[in-house]
Each structure stands twice: as structure tokens, then as C-alpha cells.
Amino acid sequence: MDINEIIKPENLVFKRTELMTDKTLSYCPGCGHGTAHHLIMEVVEELGIQADTIGVAPVGCSVLAYEFMDIDMTQAAHGRAPAVATGIKRLWPDKYVFTYQGDGDLAAIGTAETIHACNRGENIIIFFVNNGIYGMTGGQMAPTTLEGMRSSTSPYGRDLASMGHPIKMTELIAQLPGTVYVTRQAVHKAANVRKTKKAIHKAFEVAKEKKGLAFVEIVSNCNSGWKMTPVDSNIWMEENMFPFYPLGDIKVDGKIVKDLMSDLM
């Protein structure tokens, strides 16, 4: 059968969402940021809420997220995205407002803003892309860098005694009454992408109901920072990141659905 018989408009089953701009993504080859961007915009497109959605870009690799997502966006100072989103949401209570943040932004410099936006139960969505490293500045140790993991500022591996422990922000904020839906997903495999998309749909539903904050962590790779090929980095992520940052829902409809204590052991 000739390929051209298949490649016809009536047989189209998947194309890139129109809510991504034509700009080439600034991310490294194989970086999960791109997949996460596409998923969020696919959901915004499917819900038909482009005119009702305002995003907040962080400082980090995704600082230029506003170049790629075809919605009104505000670029926040490092770590302050949840406060910026709070300001927008309080003044536009009927719009969907989300932040898109990395681990350095959300779990180090912006810890206070993250925790307090969650605790106030702001009706916003936080997308948290965790790759355990500072990507944009060149692969320094992040708050979520694993024990023993090498980075440019932990060249001999993260030493817990002197550098502290990797922080599980998602489990932490799940315990705050202001969060309604808290989940951890990934985007490196098709099955994970489909689950993440469902999670993003759920997060926008929560935002619509104005019951509190929805928090979607996406564990991702940083092949440049980890110094691996994209495919190898995804295997390394499964073997090393997922045991410490296990995937799945942590809180649904305001109820914790996971044994947090056993996880902390």
C-alpha cells in the first residue's frame, strides 16, 4: 500500500496542537519540558479555554515558556510564580491561572511562595517539572538532586551530611488543606504521557470548581545536565528518580490516597 494513500487529511489522527506557537523550542533534544508544554496546551485547546487561561513562566529552562504557549502569560521572578499567579487569579477569579516551574524555582528559592499559595488554597494550578538539577545555569545541584547524584556543584555526588537531603515538595504540599489534587507523573513514555494528560485535565477541572489548588509534578529528564543521551537519561530516570519520586496520585478530591509515612521511611 502506498504511503500517500494513508497520508490524507481524512486519515489524520494526531497533529501538534495549534495552541503551541511556531517557534522552535529552546530545550535540548529529548527534554521532557517540550512534551509537558504540548500536553498543557492540548488540554487548554480541548477545553476551549484559550481566552480564559493565563500562564506564569518561571526562571529556569522554561523561562521562555511564553514564547511557545499561545496564551497570555506573565514571566515571574525566580521562585515567585505562585505569588504572581495569586495576584492574577485574585483579580481575574473566573480565569484559569497556572504556573509552570522547575525544581530550583519551586523547591528552593520559591519554597515559601509555593507552600503559602498551596496553604491558602489558591484556585490555581501548579505544574512542577522536576529533573533534579538546575538545567539553565549549567547543571548545578538542585533541592531535588538525589543522594550521590553528581552535578557541577556536587561533583563527587550529593553528600547528605553536608548538602542536605533531596526534598519531596509534592508529598509536603499534599499535607496542606489548601491542596485538592496532587499527583506525580512523567512524560517519557506514551503510557505516561496519556496518564499525565488525564492528570492535567483533572487539574483544570479542580480549578474550574474553585475548590483549591491543583499540583501536578512531572518527573523529567535533563540529559544535558545528567550528561547522558536522551534515551539513556529516560532509563536512568526510571531506575533512579522513580524509586525516590514514585509516580501516581497523592491526593484526590482533597483526600490523601497514598501512605505518606511508608514513603518517607
Partner: peptide, 21 residues
């Protein structure tokens, strides 16, 4: 035409077509 390749593509460069034969 399962679309797995397209949905994991970080850069959204893949368009998928499918036909039942």
C-alpha cells in the same frame, strides 16, 4: 498509526495518519 511517537515527541514534530484496511 498508534500515535505513541507523536505524543512523546518533545518538539511536536510528528503528525500521524491512520487507515483501516
Amino acid at each position: 498509526g498508534c500515535t505513541n511517537c507523536a505524543i512523546v515527541c518533545p518538539d511536536g514534530v510528528i503528525t500521524v495518519y491512520r487507515l483501516k484496511v
